[in-house]
Each structure stands twice: as C-alpha cells, then as structure tokens.
Design a binder for these strands. Structure first.
Ligand SMILES: [Mn+2]
Ligand SMILES: [Mn+2]
Ligand SMILES: [Zn+2]
Ligand SMILES: [Zn+2]
Lengths: 141, 141
DNA sequence: ACAATCCTTGCAACATTGTTGCGTTTATTT
DNA sequence: AAATAAACGCAACAATGTTGCAAGGATTGT
C-alpha cells in the first residue's frame, strides 16, 4: 500500500526532471497517503525510522516539491504551513479548503466551483481564487 | 480629520463597555483611517510620538479590539497578522479579501457575495466563509 | 575509472512573530 | 482615602521558518 505510493511518488518526481532522493520520495508518499493537509511537524513524525531527515532538509524538500507543483501549501490561522499533494483540480486557479477553527485541521474541498462575477480595483491583476470555509470538524464539533 | 476619527474610535470603544485608553483610541483611529489591513509593525510605525506603546501592549490592545468585534485580523502568506477596522458588512458570515502575492498587501473586498451551493462532509459544522483573491496589486502589477 | 561539477544534506546560528509571567502603574469603585 | 480592578512595561520565552557553510553523494565528461 505505502509501497505503491512510493512508486507513484518516484514516478511523479522523475517526470519533473528532479533527483528522486529517498527523502523526497518518502515525503511525497506520506502526503499522497494523507487526506488532509499536514504540517511540517506531522510529516516529520510520520517519517519511518529508516528515513530520519534533518528539520531543514525536510523544509527544503517540501519547498522543492511545491516548486515542482507536486504539492501545495496552505496557510492557516495558527501561522503554520500545511502541505498537501496536488490532484488534477489544483491545476485550475480555483481552490477551496475547510479549516477547523478549533484544531486547525485543513482539508481540501475539491468539488467546488466559484462564480467570478466581481471585479478588482483598477490596476490589480487576478491570479488565483481561494475559498476558505471555516467551522468545526467532525472531531471538534 | 484624524481628530474626528479619534472621537469615533472613542465612541466605539465606550459603546462596548471598555476602558477607552489613549492606546486603544489611537490604534483604532489609525485602523479606521487606513483602507488596507495593517500589520502590527505598520501600526507601530504610525503611532504618533506622543503615544509610544510597548510591543506587547500593542499586541494586547489589538487582541482586545478583536474580542470586542471592533476590528478583525487576517492571516496572510507571510505568516503575519493584518488588522482592519470592522465595517457593517463584517457582521455577516461572509468575508472577502484581496492579497497581493508580491508585497503581501491585503485589502477588503466588501461588495462581494458568495453562493453557497456546496456542502461539508457529515459531522462538519459551518461557521464562516472567507474568499481570498490572490494577484498583484496596482503597485506590484 | 577518474576528475570535475552540481545537487543535496546536516549542523549551527539566526530572524521574525507572537506569547506568558510578573511586578508596577493607572483608573475606577466603594 | 482606601480598596479593587484593569492596563502597562519589561524580560524571558516559544514556535516556526531561514540562511550560511562545509561535507557528502550523485552525474557528467574525458
Ligand atoms: Mn488544497
Ligand atoms: Mn476584512
Ligand atoms: Zn477540528
Ligand atoms: Zn503588491
């Protein structure tokens, strides 16, 4: 199961012309296996004993994966980045997340369209729209 | 001009049954005068020489104003809180902001309605919806 | 195979933002 | 005026993420 994801992760990394190091593969596999967005800390804790990475190395690997568009990161009200593997829907310029106001959990709400019937002030340029639904998750509600 | 806002700020604070200290009045007046959301740092720099507050006092005053619903704060991708005076529209559970991906500037997009044609996973409870439009501001574009 | 080059890693130090504890000052109440 | 409560300033702390640099490992060219 996790082995399958390792192969998928390795494929994704190599298709982007990057060096498929054990760290990157392991990190991406963890993110692919997880439904919700994960903090640096959570990823670190889930790393297997055979793959202990330095804090900084983990930060740099995550940043590399973000740059290659294999994952994306989301800010939260607790000022902590959360990382999540990219799905097809992330190619569009629309993105929706649910954020729990109690435990700060973040999940992607992929099937969600946003109407764009508004306009920005003159001189402003549109790049991306991000919808955040706040509330209580099943555990905290 | 700023004196008028001082009176307004004092009114707002007293109507909420709080002690109208010079710090709170000055901070709220600054936020009322500014169109875009301001960081702690920016507010600190705009404080007049006659009103020098300790860093921590400023943080605590801002938190107090947030608790009284006189201002609200917004997270940004640079992990810095930005504060903004509340208008009438902030009483609703809808809120929209523009965030510049270059300089991290944040402005409120008040006249913006969001359709709610989606649903959360079972067990999740809705509280508030927040729409973020990312792009380049007039200065950075 | 060997050397040159480039990328990746680990470690230490640092930067930034925000928080907590606590004693002192200031305002409000009695 | 005395008692009480709130606000303030200072110092120390916590958490998250960044930067510099030397060492290690993989790729490439000869
Ligand atoms: Mn997402
Ligand atoms: Mn706002
Ligand atoms: Zn929760
Ligand atoms: Zn800008």
């Amino acid at each position: 199961m996790l082995n399958k994801l390792h192969i998928t992760a390795e494929d994704m990394i190599q298709q982007n012309g990057g060096r498929a190091t054990a760290g990157r593969i392991g990190i991406l596999a963890i993110l692919l296996a997880e439904q919700q967005a994960m903090t640096h800390r959570e990823i670190e804790q889930r790393l297997p004993g055979t793959l202990q990475l330095d804090r900084v190395t983990l930060y740099r690997a995550l940043e590399w994966l973000v740059g290659k568009n294999l994952i994306h990161k989301v800010t939260s009200d607790d000022r902590v980045w959360r990382y999540h593997a990219n799905r097809e829907v992330h190619n569009t310029h629309q993105h929706a997340h649910f954020k729990c106001t109690c435990c700060a959990q973040v999940i992607c709400l992929d099937d969600l369209t946003i109407e764009r019937n508004w306009h920005l002030p003159t001189g402003y340029r549109f790049q991306e729209i991000e919808l955040t639904v706040k509330g209580l998750c099943a555990d905290c509600g």
